[in-house]
């Protein structure tokens, strides 16, 4: 489990940030992206993927949340 921060990029896309490793990347897909259910498996541009416990969407971004690493790209 790692603390990550999700924010909006310049083009409105989700940007993933892992402070511990200074890893910043765009999110290419998020399993659930509706106001009621948000999170699930997220896929990063670098090929890595993480899992956020599905929850109601955060009221505003950036938002810090705990995520589980499914598959780190390396």
């Amino acid at each position: 489990m790692a603390n990550i921060m999700i924010r909006r990029g310049d083009k409105g896309e989700y940007v993933f940030y892992l402070p511990k490793r200074d890893l910043e990347d765009t999110i290419v897909s998020m399993e659930f992206d509706t106001p009621e259910k948000w999170g699930g498996e997220i896929k990063l541009n670098n090929g890595g993927s993480y899992f956020i416990e599905p929850q109601t969407a955060p009221e505003r971004l950036p938002y810090s949340v705990r995520a589980k690493r499914l598959d780190a790209a390396e």
């Binding site: 921060m5 924010r7 940030y17 505003r60 938002y63």
Partner: peptide
């Protein structure tokens, strides 16, 4: 960048 990210999240 650390403090900037923090202020973005906390104070918008």
């Amino acid at each position: 960048n650390y403090i900037s990210r923090h202020m973005e999240e906390k104070y918008g």
